[in-house]
Write a protein that binds this DNA or RNA. Structure first.
Lengths: 298, 298
DNA sequence: GATCCATTATGCAAATATGCATGAATTGGC
DNA sequence: GCCAATTCATGCATATTTGCATAATGGATC
């Protein structure tokens, strides 16, 4: 019958393409093997086989390192598109799965993951023992579209329409500093007195600055002379007297080495949103965890 | 290290996704097996394994027929995207390949494939025996973007910018009919006398009508009361006296059962373009065949 | 320059996937 | 209503792929 169908062009081994993709992105066969839960030799042979199958040299073996050839780079672009689509397949499939057993990856900021989540997760484990939970503590906003997590806890309102969000109860954050440091800058008692203080910043200080402004503290990017992406480091810097930091009262008030800066100042409300991908929320498993977290955290 | 990488979501077996794609598109495991050069049982097991892996039922086994479930249909959409990307990978790879051995698929209209190509292809086979040639005779314009062919011969100028085209020498086409039929409509001797004649049409008559108009024959869609997508059938209908048809002088003049309609009329120039995809033209193999065809057919 | 560490290559046994042959079930035509 | 033609499922021998253990190689560091 029809020999003019275009299947011939997709007849190559797709798993080899996957091996190539992950190897190129991770930078080495070994790293790719770790990422995929395989051994390095398998990946090596798959990439080699792909090169033979396509008749294209993908990597230049420069010593112990693999560097992409020009052809490899050109091809990687298209293989990435395959990977993107594969991610969509996986996401859509997870969304349709009625199975409860399986893994759910929850992303949250370091502090939230360390201080608020543990008891909730522990309860969830008892409540739904078939569900494996993976907590991803990162202060970067993971890309739910790319399935870097199934459920994320965010401190800003998500805008993308592909995402579903539910607002949880607010926490209160206050400014904290070591008594030593406060003495050093003259024990400020008004917001204006903080104009020259050192604030310990995050990678993106926009929301933080806006919150401070609402409290009446008028400072600029110039006040952030210490910046870290880690809440832990942030907090340790505060304790060490490196400047003024911010954290939830739950944590700050429990720490004897620090005290509130301007205790009468209104708190910064820290809102938390529970977020998931629209496509995932049709999954029984995701729904269960999503609803459980919403219930427990609000 | 980073557990927040999104590789986990693409860890499923991509070949199984391919099996699902082809099965769903072809409509059965057996058809898919034929298309991919595998056996049906392998595909069946791969699809089954994919269902288990994703936890989603893709097909409903209704008797001997597989029908997509709702979930399967949703997923197919994304798997199609994977397939599209895979096609790009393959095309790009072919374009980069310096290997000469391999297959080249040439698409041409039925008539062209049957009457003009054979001697040229025979010569090419002698000239480049490592190249396997596949001739796809179809009157539909194959989609070069989707790699339905590597090289196409077309009778209209391609407009897409991704395509590279070279114009070949023109052929002349004339109107032909069986003497019986001509007698029946009164042996017309002027273009105007053809106003009520039956013309045998193609699926899309736009270019044909335009060509006739240039010859001074003013007819409309209404004159096409017999339509076929096959040049063979078209020609057999002409020989059988079903109406007026068109073909290249090379073929028409060689057929004793028919004669030219209005022999003094100017011929319809039939231009031919040799077309390939921009990305493929960087391939040594494609270049060789493309240049050879251009040389031999102009 | 010797050593350590992490990388890629290779040999081999075990696990896995594939193709073939066959059987069962279903459709469509006469 | 029966027959022929397809289709999917299954058992089994064979091919292929995978993982493991172990080299071999190349950078980095002191």
């Amino acid at each position: 019958m029809q020999i003019c169908m275009n299947w011939r062009s997709i007849k190559f081994d797709w798993n080899r393409a996957r091996a190539f993709l992950v190897t190129a992105e991770e930078g080495s066969l070994s790293a790719a093997a770790r990422a995929l839960g395989m051994v390095q030799s398998t990946l090596g042979r798959q990439v080699e086989a792909l090169e033979a199958e396509l008749g294209v040299t993908l990597f230049e073996r420069a010593g112990r390192r693999l560097v992409l050839t020009r052809n490899g780079r050109d091809l990687l672009e298209h293989v990435r598109a395959m990977g993107e689509a594969a991610g969509q397949v996986s996401m859509s499939a997870s969304g349709q799965s009625e199975l409860i057993e399986g893994t759910i990856r929850i992303s949250a900021t370091e502090t939230f993951a360390a201080k608020r989540l543990p008891p909730v997760i522990a309860k969830l484990r008892k409540f739904q023992p078939e569900i494996t939970v993976e907590v991803c503590a990162t202060n970067k906003a993971v890309d739910l579209n790319r399935r870097e997590a199934d459920i994320a806890l965010r401190h800003f309102r998500p805008t993308q329409t592909e995402l579903i969000a539910r607002k949880l109860s607010d926490d209160n954050a206050f400014l904290y500093a070591a008594p030593d440091y406060l003495a050093q800058i003259g024990d400020p008692s008004t917001p204006a007195a903080l104009g020259d203080a050192d604030f310990i910043g995050f990678e993106n200080n926009d929301v933080y600055l806006k919150g401070l402004k609402q409290m009446g503290v008028e400072i600029t990017e110039g006040n952030f002379r210490l910046i870290t992406d880690s809440h832990n480091v942030h907090w340790e810097l505060v304790k060490a007297g490196a400047g003024i930091g911010v954290t939830m009262d739950l944590i700050g008030d429990a720490e004897p080495q620090v005290k509130r800066v301007l205790p009468d100042l209104a708190p910064v409300p820290v809102s938390t949103w529970l977020v998931t991908h629209r496509e995932l929320n049709t999954s029984r498993r995701v729904r269960i965890v999503f609803d459980f977290l919403a219930e427990e955290l609000s």
